[in-house]
Design a protein around this nucleic acid. Structure first.
Lengths: 339, 339
DNA sequence: CTGAAAGCGCTTACAG
DNA sequence: CTGAAAGCGCTTACAG
């Protein structure tokens, strides 16, 4: 009685229509809450649809509406240290809208980037979010003339695009003010390469609060540099810092280790604060790090909602949107963990 | 002359047909290398297609063939520590086949898992790869009666499924034999919770080579445990180990740190080998860790090709496929880095 | 060797 | 209030 269309096992709208005793047009309208029909009809169709387990074929819908309910996340962050939180935020924001996310990790290879972008365009993605490892570098692929909306998150966007990034200045301010609030007066800043915009922004915030009695120590994003920097600070005569603001958690971890090796107590003698809230580093440090969280998940959430808005044709103001950071208090500073 | 179909900017097969002066059927057959026609016609159609930038709409193709050229990767590994390498392998293997990958990170939430699986099925994914954090736990979602093929990689599969995992026994053997080859005779094993199959397998390999003069130290996957274990071993009188095989890199890192704090030299006095080759830990340890790599990328590659084979209807032998591990030699053991 | 027609699963004017 | 028809972009028997 109803098995004339069991083609590949999937229940189609024809099955719903047959089972509800209406035409497929009516079935469609009932399910989409469009058209005009008796409430009883609409309800019956809906009930029947759930009963026989109807799920509309997204491919067919997409062919009509030119919307596929998929978006692509393009990144060159192989480790996923920054991209994974961003991805989590995107997914969280979009799963309720039925949108699934393609993840494409391109190394720094333009050809590979193009292959992935083309593969996504072939699938009619509704939009693309570009992400990366730093906010002052572009991905090795040009996304400026694509037939779908593009949003940038934690990577440099093209002029006129929508770009989301964390507020480095505000985050650094949070960290230094926290140290000052704990009574620290000689606060050092050990950080990454000066070529990073983030590094310069954080240093600028540090300077604006601490003044320039102490030099900013620029280096690499490595534990080795953290050790070296501590050796520098403690190897010269004169008063030592009682607070250290580090450019990332790896440096902070090394700083804490290096201080322990010199029998300097953290946090009693020196308070240390990190940046990134990279759990795996921050939580394993002894003592665990108080550090700045860039709220990358929130950033992903915003980027997801924005690309969705653009896909739906809603207007979005272009420009750089800066989201605030947050201080995560653990034990490396002492002080009241209840903020 | 050719702009009657500029609907949403996309070039369709109609445009190709018109531009080449053939019917759309012929155009389709020319582009797909099917049907019979003059070589000149076929070539002309192809040339015209590239010239006007034709890219077939994957949604339309999918509607016909019931293949979407997408697959889903489902995981509960939020950090991506295991899933990201697996994902990289999958992508590497499938991008040449035009397949894009949906990444769905479900926490350990069954409801969320179902939402993601349904979203993927709606999009007619050609298959699903399930991945996780350990090989003896299932994802919190039942994938056994899905209308698409499912392959498991680094997570427990259902009976009768295809499952890929690393060879823990062989990997551990590699590590211990390396220590023995360096002349180490009192080799300890500090590892994770005995409840993990991987832990038991690795311990079994260790036992089979070292015998049972020394106890296996089971603990947690943390640096804290590494420190504690060293304190145990060095805190009791009697001969000390000259080699330590650690259950993962975090423990190994802590062991190296703890030994340094006791002025035991690594690798001169004690050789330490880790497990996982988790770059961010292994490379930052002082000295960098010699460690076992589970080849998760290769695992992903195999899983990707297998799910593709199943999607294309090719027969695949069910069962557990074990892939060999590999030793990555750095400096924590001494010995010849040229293996 | 080539093309007209039917159809994949759905939606949306348009008639009744 | 409901349904027949056309169409999204493609492929694939089937005729010629």
């Amino acid at each position: 009685m109803e098995n004339q269309r069991i083609r590949n096992g999937r229940v189609t709208i024809h099955d719903v229509a047959a089972a509800a005793g209406v035409s497929i047009s009516t079935a469609s309208k009932a399910l989409n809450n469009t058209g005009r029909m008796g409430d009883d009809t609409r309800e019956r169709v809906k009930r029947v649809a759930t009963e026989i387990g109807f799920r509309p074929n997204a491919l067919a819908k997409g062919l009509l509406s030119n919307r596929s309910f998929t978006i692509g996340l393009l990144t060159n962050d192989t480790y996923g240290r920054f991209t994974l939180p961003v991805m989590a935020g995107i997914t969280e924001a979009l799963v309720d809208h039925g949108v699934s996310v393609f993840l494409c990790t391109i190394e720094d290879d333009p050809a590979l980037g193009k292959v992935h972008v083309d593969a996504m365009l072939d699938k009619s993605v509704d939009g693309i979010i570009a992400s990366g490892k730093r906010i002052d570098r572009r991905l090795p692929v040009d996304l400026s003339h694509l037939p779908v909306p593009v949003v940038y998150a934690f990577t440099e966007g093209t002029p006129g695009s929508v770009t989301f990034c964390a507020d480095d200045f505000q985050g650094a301010t949070l960290a230094v003010e926290w140290l000052m609030g704990l009574g620290r007066r000689r606060i050092a800043h050990i950080t990454g390469p000066e070529s990073f915009v983030s590094v310069r922004e954080r240093a600028r915030a540090y300077r604006s609060l601490v003044g320039d009695t102490l030099p900013v120590l620029y280096g690499t994003w490595s534990e080795a540099w953290g050790h070296e920097a501590v050796a520098k600070l403690w190897g010269t005569p004169g008063p030592k810092p009682d607070g250290i603001f580090c450019g990332n958690d790896q440096i902070a971890r090394a700083v804490v280790d290096a201080l322990r090796e010199r029998d300097v107590r953290v946090p009693q003698d020196v308070s240390v604060v990190g940046f990134d809230n990279w759990e795996i580093v921050a939580a394993q440090t002894r003592p665990p790090l108080t550090t700045v969280d860039m709220n990358l998940k929130a950033l992903g959430r915003e980027a997801g909602l924005t690309v969705l808005a653009l896909a739906e044709g809603r207007a979005v103001e272009p420009g750089i949107r800066t989201l605030p950071c947050e201080l995560v208090v653990r034990q490396s500073c002492g002080g009241n963990p209840d903020h």
